[in-house]
Amino acid sequence: MIEARHLTKTFRDKKRGEIYAANDISFRVQPGQIYGLLGANGAGKTTTLRLLATLLKPTSGSAVIAGFDVAAEPEKVRAHVGFLAASTALYGRLTAREMITYFGQLNGLAGAEIKLRIQRLADALDMHEFLDRRCEKFSTGMKQKTSIARTLIHDPAVMIFDEPTLGLDVMTARAIVRFVRECRDRGKTVIYSTHVMGEVEKLCDTIGIIHDGRLLAEGTLAELRARYGEQDLEEVFVKAVGGEGKK
């Protein structure tokens, strides 16, 4: 389970002073659910997810993930989280197997257990063909599969996806969406950020609209449509953030 309570993160900028990248964000995601964080570029999606993954420390507020507080026990939080972002790359000079093994070791798994899990993941993701080749020569699809296997090696209860389909072709993006759904079906708690309306409509049980570091609206797709009186999610989004003119 994920529970964010008044999560706030400020950065100091020389020209603009104090910036609220995440401002008083609270929400809750239950196991077996996908929470979609919808927002434009720079809205604060990445900051919020990095706070949940303990890559950043909150300025104020807190979050509890799988029963651990992000500020008090960041290592335990990370042990129960699988984090996949467009910016989490692979080590080019390692093979896919070495890459996944490394993260298995970092998660404290024994050698035999890692071998077994890699075998299973490679079966499920159809990776055997390139498992022992170096990641630098991979296609985007192969890279994505390896990254997914990397996030799953320690079988985390919580999955955090930060724009995982960014820059991918349609087929690879669809494979990712399918994989996210599988995570939910296996009872994992999933949070998913994107600026693609279609993905949110297809995937998410609950949608949070984030803008300028604030969570402006939250609800199921049906609830949001009803509240703003629009069928099209894009129109809902524009209304929620206060019209097109406002940035």
Binding site: A53, L55, E75, K76, R78, A79, V81, F83, A85, S87, T88, A89, L90, Y91, G92, F103, L106, N107, G108, S147, R150, T151, H154
Partner: peptide, 14 residues
């Protein structure tokens, strides 16, 4: 630069 730092920091290692 290669984006692997963020990957590494996701691991539970202190």
């Amino acid at each position: 630069e290669r984006g692997t730092m963020e990957t590494l920091l996701c691991s539970p290692v202190a």
